[in-house]
């Protein structure tokens, strides 16, 4: 079923909307959740919560890209769940590794004047990503948005594993420089 048809079901408050969303995007959302949580039950729970959130949000919302709308909800829910589970102790899995890598992008606090709001950080990251060559941007998002493993990314784009590592290494270094230039303090 097309996105527009699924959206019409949501707007008509027809519960088949959830079934069709599950059919079309269940696997996609599950992959996002599983990459972060590495746990089947938790991932299933996040995906089900995603459908509920979508049901409550549409209407009034009418997302232009249903896939990304759902994916973003799943990612946020999964990350919240991950944070809840790992609040007291350091966890394991790909998300931990990905976060460890992102530490490299954080500028030294003493180099900046004041903190910026999270929204401003989001805006700057968008500016930064738009400044990247397409390949670098794609690889970065697959790693830090979808939390995919290096070898998955390499396979997806037909790159060598080491190429992916190199691209990510250089992009993180660039992001750090960029955020420093913008005076970002985190």
């Amino acid at each position: 079923m097309r996105d527009t048809e699924i959206m019409d079901l949501y707007w008509a408050r027809d519960e088949r909307a959830i079934h069709e969303t599950q059919n079309s995007y269940g696997r996609y959302c599950y992959c996002i959740a599983y990459n972060i949580l590495k746990d089947r039950e938790d991932s299933d729970e996040c995906v089900n919560d995603t459908w509920l959130r979508a049901w409550n949000a549409i209407p009034p919302k009418r997302p232009e890209r249903l896939e990304l709308f759902l994916g973003t909800i799943t990612r946020n829910l999964s990350f919240d769940k991950w944070k809840g589970k790992h609040a007291m102790k350091r966890g394991s899995g790909e998300i931990t590794v990905a976060l460890d890598e992102l530490v490299e992008c954080v500028p030294d606090r003493h180099n900046t004047e004041e903190e910026v709001e999270a929204a401003e950080l989001g805006r700057l990251i968008n500016v930064f990503l738009r400044s990247l060559p397409e390949r670098e941007c794609n690889v970065f998002l697959r790693r830090y948005w979808y939390v995919e493993e290096y070898n998955e990314i390499a396979k997806r784009y037909g790159l060598k594993l080491n190429t992916v590592k190199t691209i990510l290494f250089r992009t993180r270094a660039r992001l750090k420089d960029f955020l420093e230039q913008e005076g970002v303090a985190l």
Partner: peptide
């Protein structure tokens, strides 16, 4: 892992859909 990395990870949630669609 640090809070700063978490902030960047969360900020990435606001990334333009166009970029996500492209990847």
């Amino acid at each position: 892992m640090s809070d700063q990395a978490v902030k960047i990870f969360e900020a990435l949630s606001d990334v333009d859909e166009e970029l996500l669609e492209r990847c």
